[in-house]
Amino acid sequence: MDFANNPSFIRQGPRPGTRLAAAVLTSVLLLIGDSQYGLMDKAREALSVVFYPLQRAVNLPITAARHVDDFFTTQTNLKAENEAMRSQHLAMAARLARLETLEQDYAALRRLNQLKSMRQDAGGLAEILYTGRDPFSYKIIIDKGEDAHLRAGQPVVDDQGLIGQITRVQPLTAEVTLVIDKTLMVPVMVQRNGIRAVLYGYGGGVEARYLPVHSDVRTGDLLVTSGIDGLYPAGIPVAQVGRVERNPDAAFIRLNSMPVAGVQHGRYVLVLNEKTNVPARPPEPVVPVKPKSKPSSDDSE
C-alpha cells in the first residue's frame, strides 16, 4: 500500500487503526501511571506553569470587571461601614467609661477589704444606696440592715477614716449619720500629742469646739478618735485641722477642720462593731441629752 514513490498527498503515515492502537495504549499507560503511581505529577506541574499565563490572561477581563464593580460598590459599603464603626465607637466609649468606674470600685473594695482583714472589730462591707433627701441633714443609706445584724450606734468607716455612725436600722437598709451632720459629735484627740476634744459636725464640715486658746494645735494635725467613749475604737482618723484661729477675746480656739474620710463620695463603707468590753452605762440622767454624744471629760486638760 505504502510505496516509496507515492506522491506526498497519498502518503498518510500509519493506518488509522494502528494510530488508534498506539493512542489508546499510550492513554491507558498514562491513565495507569497517573492514577496508580502519580508519575505525571512532575509533568503536570511543568505544564501548569505553561498554562498559568493563559489562565491569567483569560481571567483578566473577569478580574478587571470585578475591580470596577468593587470600586463602585465600596463607596456605599464604606459609608455603611463608617456609620457602623462610629456607633460601635460610641458603644465602646460607654463600655470603657463603665470599665473605669468598675476599676475604681474594685480598688475601693480592695482597700476596704484590706482594712477589714486588719481590724478585728470589722463588721461588714456595705454599699451606699443613696444619700438622704433632707438637705439639712447629712445622712446616707447603706444596703445592709437588720439582715446583717447591724445596730444603731455602730461606727462606719471607709479606707481613709471615720464616716459616721448608724443611727437607724431598717430591715434591709440602715441610715448612717455622717460626721458632718450637726447632730453628730465625735470624741477625738490630736494624734500628735493626745489633746482631747469633741468634734462637732455643723452641716457640711466639722469643727472641734471647746479647746482653750493655749492648746497646742497646729494646722495639719490629724484628729483621731480617742476611744474614751463606748462607741468608737481608738485611733480612727476623723479630720484634719485646717485653720487655727486664736482670738484673745474668746475663751476657745476656732478650729476649722476637714473630714479625712470620703464622707461625701465613695460607694463602699465598712461597718465596725461596737466596743465590747466597756463598763456598764451609768444610769440615765434626768435631763435629756442629745443622743449618741458624750461630751463629758474631753474639753481640755
Binding site: 488509522p16 488508534l20 492513554s27
Partner: peptide, 17 residues
Amino acid sequence: LFGQHALAYSITAYLAL
C-alpha cells in the same frame, strides 16, 4: 486524570474517521 481525554478523543476520532 492524565490520559482520560486523550483516550476518549482518539477513540471517537477513530470512529468518526
